[in-house]
Design a protein around this nucleic acid. Structure first.
Lengths: 151, 151
DNA sequence: ATCGCTGCAAAAATTTTGCAGGTAA
DNA sequence: TTACCTGCAAAATTTTTGCAGCGAT
C-alpha cells in the first residue's frame, strides 16, 4: 500500500497540513482556527457549528468565530457543507486532493450517519455539465433511511 | 404514448388529485391549502416557503400556515424537501407514483435551477440499504456548478 | 506596525409554537 | 357539532454583522 504523506495512521490529515493550507490562503493561524480544525479532524462525520463548539474544551472560542471560520474554510475548499434536511448546516473536512469524496447514509429517525465509500461515476457529472453548458460541476449525494436500531 | 390519467396536458397533477390525496390523509381541504398546492403545481422548481407566499395573489394566507402545510405535505409524501446549501428549505411536489423522481443542477452564483431527467440506478440504492441494514432507503442527489449566464 | 481575527452583543432571518376564533366535514 | 385549521403574535433557532481591542506575521 502506498504511504500516505501528510496523513496520520488513521488516514486523517495532519494539523500542520491543514494550517499550511490556511496559510497558503493568506490567512492567519490562530488558536480558535486550530481548535476548529482539531475538532473537524477528529470527527469523521459532518458537524453543526454548535457541535463543533461543544466538542471543544470549555468554550475555547466564540460561536460567531466558528461561523466565520466555516465560511472561510468552505471558500478555501477545505470543508464541505452538508444539509441533512433538518435545517442545520453541517461541515466536514474535505479529503486531500486525489482522495475520492464520499457520501452519507443518514437515519431519518435518529440522525445516525454511516459513511458510504462508493461514488458513482464522474462520467455522469461530465455529461450533465456539457449538456447544460455548466462549468465546475460537482454533486452532493446523500442517502436516507431507517437504521437497524430504529427499525 | 400512454395517456396520463389525472394529469393535465403539461404533465402536472390536477388539483383535484392533490386534494384527494390530502383528503385521503384525513385532512381538510381549505382555501390556504388549495392555494399552496396551486402554487406548487404551477412551478417546476423547488420553492422556499416565502416564495410560495409571494407567488400567491395578495397575502392569500399566512406564512406560518405555509410552514405547517409543508410539514404536513412532507409527511404525507406529497412534497419533497431540498437543501441547496444556502440555508433555506425548498419544496417541490412529488411526482405521482410510478413517475421517476428527478434531480437538479443548481448554479452556485445565481441559484438558477435546471432539472435533470436521469437518475442513476436504484440498484446502488438497494445495495447500500442491505449492506448497512437500513430500510426504506431513498436518496437525494443535486448537482452544483456555474451556469452559462454566470460564467 | 499592520491588517486580520476574535469576542461580545445586537440584529437579521428562518422556523416553530400558543391561543382564540373560524370552518370543513 | 366537533375536531381540525387559520391568522396573529410571540418565541425559539440559526446565522450574520458592527465594533473595539487583541494578536499573528
Amino acid at each position: 500500500m502506498k504511504a500516505r504523506a501528510h496523513s496520520d495512521s488513521a488516514g486523517r490529515q495532519a494539523l500542520s497540513v491543514l494550517t499550511d493550507r490556511l496559510r497558503h490562503g493568506a490567512r492567519k493561524i490562530t488558536g480558535p482556527r486550530k481548535a476548529i480544525l482539531e475538532v473537524l479532524r477528529s470527527h469523521s462525520h459532518p458537524l453543526t457549528n454548535k457541535q463543533v463548539l461543544a466538542a471543544m474544551p470549555t468554550g475555547q472560542c466564540d460561536l460567531a468565530t466558528i461561523y466565520r471560520a466555516m465560511h472561510l474554510l468552505e471558500k478555501l475548499g477545505m470543508v464541505k457543507r452538508y444539509d441533512f434536511a433538518d435545517g442545520k448546516a453541517r461541515f466536514e473536512l474535505v479529503p486531500q486532493e486525489g482522495d475520492s469524496h464520499h457520501h452519507h447514509l443518514v437515519c431519518m429517525r435518529c440522525a445516525h450517519v454511516v459513511e458510504i465509500e462508493e461514488c458513482f461515476s464522474g462520467a455522469i457529472e461530465r455529461r450533465i455539465a456539457s449538456r447544460n453548458g455548466f462549468k465546475e460541476v460537482t454533486h452532493k449525494l446523500e442517502f436516507f433511511g431507517i437504521c437497524p436500531a430504529c427499525q
